[in-house]
Write a protein that binds this DNA or RNA. Structure first.
Length: 770
DNA sequence: CAGTACTGTCATTTG
DNA sequence: TGCAAATGACAGTAC
């Protein structure tokens, strides 16, 4: 047996720890209870060995209860427990919370709206922000600028050591130590259980049961009834969670916090976000002060709300999303403003074109916000001059005189429309804002932005019910929420299965006291502790669980008259009968509760009997209520046929059976209901987490799209600026535009054709949207 | 003493 | 249709 125990303990715990380290939630307890009660006994020792009555001091009761009395040194155990809680604290550490604290504090002055987002996998160079626009190509990244960024972050105190993994060496060492200790001790099942709240009810019930059991354990009752209790891994016993763990958790140093932060949201990624992005845009458009306004107006209501780590994470992500949107709007608005001729001088100086020519307007925007354009231009130039691009000669083939023949190719991506649509794009921008007639614009369509805005609004305003319901509907459609279709039956069966191991035991007057005292106050708990007690009566039900809930034998109480601790049964809902009302001729005993208050202590045993037990005894029913209730129909009928019973007795027996079944059905029903609520709660948390993650990814995508557009814009400028006609004169951006051909080449077409293309595409997009 | 939680019971619905 | 289970509603009890 010992070798078997060691085998299972080591194997299961190692597997569990490994799974937990990779984020898989493992509930060993459920598995052991529901599937393999024998294994539980093998691993944990015999039932009697981990019965709580083995311990009679407060320390054991509070924290060392789960220790197997045979083998464990308590101090060693407590040390292990403390370290274990440290690991748990690491596991439960809510990075988003700290993320918010860190970034709101450190990044606030910059007006930055993002920065902690991990790379969403975009192949674009995210290391450079908008301020680096054309210079964002990784090959020619300005190292100086990057360095400056790092220094900037260092000044902000937000830069920690480079991320080298999820766990530091100390963490790994600690886990390794604990691992070995746990293998020796038996790992706590709650290590991997993130939903301690789900067990609180059971824990409380266990405590109540413990109080009812009336042993020395009882004197801790009030203190132990603490909401911050965890269930011990080996025995399911509860202990105060915060005794070692929370203190350690709160004692995490700032460095540890930052390290943990980095492990999840590397700061290195944060630098990718342009700190000067919004501010630069603001400079470019002095009248546009929205980013600063956003920051002040949005951060202020969000900052004080620190109740839930997740809410903060969510709000932070949503805030980032909002500000990202706003920044993009600013970007668009900037271009729009420039379209209107505010910087015509730049246009004329660069290209000698009309003041409202889009190209130069965007160039001015580019130059206003970015400092490293020339470098990128050189890069682009080299690419343009490379043979793969076909060179300028290729482009020149697409002279206006060929334009009519190129109509067929215009169905391809409208290059010009992306960047510098002339009058057309002016109108588009004025009317539809972010809705751009370019292929990328589809990713930024109104629906998407509206969705983000709606969600952000909902979060910003504290998730009022209407908005929350909208979001929930959004998620519920595919969330797969089930009303506990899987969990509840499992838990039910677990209790049945676990009960079966003990129900077969024979009658025992010595141990029946505990089970008998549970009558009426057992609750839903299906933990094996409740079943460890020997059954008091010999009734063997086909559903042994029932014997736990309904010990209604009227015979056994007579054996228990002299068990004084049964006086201290708390919360007895057995509809006690007063002794004076025990009239054999009167089975119906209403209002027994009030009368029972006057009965003598020596009559306490009657309290332990349910109304039906009293009735059965009064009617001299020759078998136990347990049998009446729990026997299968066939056996039940067989039993009835064995005795000569009066009609009143038969009626009472049927009522007892009906009520007993219904009683357990009600208990099961309530348990299911509770489980459903808890599952829903967990589902909501998961969905909120998913939503936050999706928002984060969306922000990343939008950021990448913006950078991509900036790059293409710069490339367009460079290419177009280098085009020359037969006379060596540059083409006028007001008369010509570049477009992608279907074969991937870039062609030069007259503006009028480009405009037509743009309009056509715009109509298509609108139709598609409808 | 009011409020709350827990429990048992009844009536009814559901499978 | 009968039966058992499930469930809403209500009441009793304890805290």
């Amino acid at each position: 047996m010992l070798s078997l125990k060691k085998y299972f303990t080591e194997g299961l715990i190692q597997l569990t720890i490994l799974l937990s380290l990779v984020g898989v939630r493992v509930d060993v307890d459920t598995y052991l209870n529901s599937q393999l009660p024998q294994l539980r006994e093998i691993i944990l020792g015999q039932s009697s060995a981990y019965t709580q009555t083995q311990f009679h001091n407060l320390r054991n009761t509070l924290d060392g209860y789960g220790i197997h009395p045979k083998s464990v040194d308590l101090d060693y155990y407590f040390t292990t427990r403390r370290l274990l809680n440290q690991v748990r604290a690491l596991d439960r550490f809510q990075v988003p919370t700290t993320e918010v604290n860190a970034w709101l504090v450190h990044r606030d002055p910059e007006g930055s709206v993002s920065g902690s987002q991990p790379n969403a996998g975009i192949t674009l160079d995210n290391g450079a922000g908008l301020q680096d626009g054309a210079g964002s190509d990784g090959a020619v990244r300005d190292n100086g600028a990057e360095q400056g960024y790092g220094e900037e972050l260092e000044d902000l105190g937000a830069v920690a050591a480079p991320v080298n993994g999820d766990l530091t060496k100390e963490d790994i060492d600690l886990i390794d130590i604990l691992w070995r200790q746990d293998i020796d001790l038996g790992a706590g099942r709650e290590i991997f259980d993130y939903s301690h709240r789900q067990k609180e009810n059971e824990v409380d019930k266990e405590l109540n049961d413990g109080r009812e059991r009336g042993d020395g354990w009882r004197n801790t009752g009030g203190q132990v009834s603490n909401r911050n209790l965890l269930v011990d891994g080996e025995t399911g016993e509860s202990f105060p969670a915060q005794v070692p763990g929370v203190e350690d958790q709160t004692a995490l140093s700032l460095e540890e916090c930052l390290r943990l932060l980095e492990a999840t949201f590397p700061f290195g990624e944060s630098s990718e976000f342009p700190a000067a992005d919004v501010s630069t845009l603001s400079e470019a458009v002095p009248s546009e002060s929205r980013p600063a306004g956003i920051q002040s107006s949005l951060l202020s209501p969000l900052l004080p709300e620190t109740e839930s780590p997740f809410d903060l994470e969510q709000q932070w992500q949503d805030l980032m999303s909002i500000m990202e949107m706003q920044a993009m709007e600013v970007n668009n608005t900037t271009a729009e403003t420039l379209y209107n001729g505010t910087s015509g001088d730049l246009l004329t100086s660069n290209y000698n074109l009309a003041p409202n020519t889009p190209i130069n307007q965007n160039v001015s925007l580019h130059q206003a916000s970015l400092g490293s354009c020339s470098q990128d231009f050189s890069l682009f130039s080299s690419e343009i001059e490379s043979p793969s691009m076909g060179g300028s000669s290729t482009l020149l083939q697409l002279a206006p005189d060929n334009s009519t023949g190129l109509n067929s190719t215009f169905s391809s991506t409208n290059f010009s429309g992306i960047f510098f649509p002339p009058q057309l794009n002016n109108t588009v921008n004025e009317t539809t804002g972010p809705e751009l007639p370019d292929p990328l614009g589809g990713l930024l369509d109104e629906a998407m932005l509206d969705e983000i805005s709606l969600m952000d609004l909902a979060i910003e305003e504290g998730f009022n019910p209407v908005q929350a319901s909208q979001l929930e509907e959004e998620f519920d459609s595919d969330s797969g929420l089930s009303l506990d279709s899987g969990h509840s039956p499992a838990s039910l069966s677990s209790s049945e299965a676990s009960s079966s191991s003990s129900s077969s035991s024979s009658s025992s007057s010595s141990s029946s006291s505990s089970s008998f005292s549970e009558e009426g106050a057992v609750g839903y708990s299906s933990d094996s502790e409740n079943v460890d007690f020997e059954e008091a009566e010999g009734a063997v039900g086909y559903q042994p669980e029932y014997s736990k809930f309904c010990r209604m034998s009227y015979q056994d109480p007579s054996q228990l008259h002299y068990l004084p601790y049964l006086e201290h049964v708390g919360h007895n809902h057995t509809y006690n009968m007063a002794p004076g009302t025990l009239d054999p001729e009167e089975p119906k005993l209403p209002n027994v509760g009030k009368k029972s208050n006057k009965e003598k202590p020596s009559e306490f045993l009657d309290k332990q009997m349910s109304r039906d037990e009293h009735r059965a005894r009064a009617m001299k029913i020759p078998f136990t209520n347990d049998k009446i209730i729990n026997l299968p129909v066939e056996e039940f009928n067989e039993l009835l046929s064995k005795y000569q019973l009066s009609e009143a007795q038969l009626s009472l027996i049927r009522d007892i059976r009906r009520r007993g079944k219904n009683k357990m059905a009600a208990q099961n029903c309530r348990k299911r209901k509770l489980d459903t609520i808890l599952n829903l709660e967990r589902d909501v948390e998961d969905l909120q987490r998913d939503k936050s993650k999706l928002l984060r990814e969306k922000v990343e995508f939008l950021k990448s799209i913006r950078q991509m557009k900036q790059k293409v814009q710069n490339l367009y400028q460079e290419v177009f600026g280098r085009l020359r006609d037969e006379n060596g004169q540059p083409y006028s951006p007001s008369q010509y535009a570049l477009q992608y051909a279907s074969d991937g080449s870039v062609i030069l077409i007259p503006r009028t054709l480009a405009d037509q293309q743009a309009r056509r595409q715009e109509r298509k997009q609108k139709d598609r949207r409808k």
